[in-house]
Design a protein around this nucleic acid. Structure first.
Lengths: 198, 198
DNA sequence: TTGACAAGCTACCGATCGTTCGGTAACCTA
DNA sequence: TAGGTTACCGAACGATCGGTAGCTTGTCAA
């Protein structure tokens, strides 16, 4: 249990990455420790030097995914003043993160129910901050009378859903040009949210 | 293996329903036959009177979900002439079906990779028809110059994604008034798709 | 040169997995 | 009332599950 997450312990993070990919593909319950061991080229026993149990592994994966999300999505976006531009960048960075980095584990939030209640609360709490970032941008747009007449909570859900959905497509049928996918998703979302230009 | 699916063998369908709910909640791999048996109040052995294996159970669930989708969503919507109204009704019926009926298993399409390739193809083929229904409506809207300048395939994905997303929310934090949720989702989607009224 | 330690390994544990077996009570039909 | 079918049960199967104990390395500081 490391307290200082300053530099990157490469092997451990590689295990997280690989485990996350497997779990996105086959689910938490459908991914065995043996599967993970085989995928990283180790034995089961060897893996247990990097984490203390399967449940804790999921917890670590979720946490480091949120860490990375904070670093490459939330933090850069937060400094943008205009709420519309902030939202556009938020979507762009989130999708890019899921494609280029292994940030795709965001999909795994659907698996957070396999954690113990205390761990679930921590994860949900951290996620709510990301949620709040979107909701805040929507509120600012509403104040500036640039937002359509819509339910902010439901709209927030739809935005979150669109981003995680794009990650899910990647793992099945969709193989389009990433930049095109990003631009279309941003345009689609903005059209849904903003009042039409006068 | 029944060939005539005319009337409803109640108990078998109850097992499908229950199994689907468990799998939505815990994933295919995370749901054991024992779990299902306990949930329906039977022994594991007794269950095997109703299906021949876990994989085939998933296949049957997916198929009967699509059957029901055809019946209560696709077929009623298909008869609506105006593409916009058709799309609105499509979204409404789909969400209603997921809430009131156990049609929520749509979420399980993310688990179709646990099937054998031949079964996967059948399911994907049937799903493509639902997909095509949306895409067709978008194309008609484009012909009538009522659609924004957008990528029809990606937009179709986003619509599908919004509908299945609503089903996913139901199973975690969201407990809003269904009619409100439906109206907001339709409004959000239409704003994203249609050119603003002149 | 030594020794501490991280990072692996082989070998194994009890529990649970999906699945099959033989049997049985209740019902339908002739 | 005999024969067959439907719907289930208890018990067990081999395989795999998550996890552990103890041994062997490679690396590097003292």
């Amino acid at each position: 249990m490391k307290l200082i997450a300053g530099e990157a312990p490469t092997r451990t993070e590689e295990i997280y990455r690989t485990a996350a990919e497997l779990m996105v593909e086959k689910g938490y319950g459908g991914t065995s420790i043996s599967d993970i061991a085989q995928a990283v080229g180790m034995t089961k026993a060897g893996l247990y030097h990097h984490f203390s149990g399967k449940q804790e592994l999921l917890f670590q994966i979720l946490n480091s995914a949120i860490d990375e999300g904070d670093r490459v999505v939330s933090k850069p976006a937060r400094s943008i003043e205009d709420p519309e531009q902030r939202l556009r960048q938020l979507i762009r960075l989130q999708i890019q993160g899921q494609i280029s980095l292994g940030l795709a584990f965001i999909v795994l939030f659907s698996e957070r129910n396999h954690l113990e209640p205390a761990q679930q609360k921590k994860i949900s709490g951290r996620m709510r901050k990301f949620h709040a970032l979107i909701k805040q941008a929507l509120r600012e747009l509403a104040e500036q009378d640039r937002l359509r007449n819509l339910d902010v909570d439901i709209a927030t859900m739809h935005i979150m859903n669109a981003m995680t959905g794009v990650a899910r497509w990647k793992h099945q049928n969709f193989a389009s040009d990433p930049e095109h996918l990003i631009q279309e998703t941003i345009a689609y979302t903005m059209a849904a949210l903003l009042k039409p230009a006068s």
